[in-house]
């Protein structure tokens, strides 16, 4: 039996879908309005960790306050595509130390391609060197660790262009 550390992402995805089914089964009943299909599948405190297929180390961790599977035009669910609220996406370096953290109030996540994107605002930061990024409209490519911003990007680097000139006597 493979250790949980070396579990591949399809295994994690299967676990996630099972969690979705569980959420569906535990939906509140009673006098509440009957939820439609998408609402029924909404998961609170949704999260998934995606690991490197070779090393088994965590590369990305998606978590959110709420997530719903995306429905296709025919009413069916699109596999691995989620609309999430309150996203926190953490990318990890090869030694599993935290690298960038991206936060977005609302965005779409594709756990197969490891992408996330939104037309709305977002912020990103790296604690190690204090780099922070803000903007509106982003696309994150989790495989290449590439962040594309389409509007009003602001980046703050905690550094200076030159060393201070010594004070003259």
């Amino acid at each position: 039996m493979p250790s949980p550390r070396h579990r591949s992402w399809p295994t994690a995805l299967a676990g996630l879908l099972a969690l979705g089914a569980l959420a569906q089964g535990t939906a509140p009943s009673g006098s509440a309005p009957v939820p439609d299909r998408a609402t029924a599948a909404t998961i609170r405190q949704w999260g998934i960790s995606l690991r490197d297929n070779v090393t088994g180390r965590v590369q990305l961790r998606f978590s959110s306050t709420e997530a719903s599977p995306v429905t296709s035009g025919k009413g069916g669910l699109v596999p691995a595509l989620w609309d999430v609220t309150g996203l926190r996406l953490e990318s990890f370096r090869s030694d599993e130390r935290s690298d960038f953290i991206i936060e977005s109030p609302s965005c779409r996540v594709d756990v197969t391609t490891r992408d996330a994107g939104s037309a709305g605002i977002f912020s990103a930061r790296r604690e190690a060197d204090g780099v922070s990024i803000k903007g509106r409209g982003f696309q994150f490519d989790g495989t290449e660790k590439r962040l594309t911003v389409s509007n009003s990007v602001q980046i703050e680097l905690r550094t200076r262009l030159f060393q201070s000139k010594p004070a003259s006597p």
Binding site: R126, G135, E144, K145, R146, V153, Q154, L157
Partner: peptide, 23 residues
């Protein structure tokens, strides 16, 4: 204040792992 550099633009692509920023 001097210990920071601010970059802003309309568009950008940031290669987060490589540390290459294009604005």
């Amino acid at each position: 204040q001097q210990d920071r550099i601010l970059l802003s633009a309309t568009n950008c692509v940031l290669e987060l792992e490589k540390g290459v920023y294009h604005l």
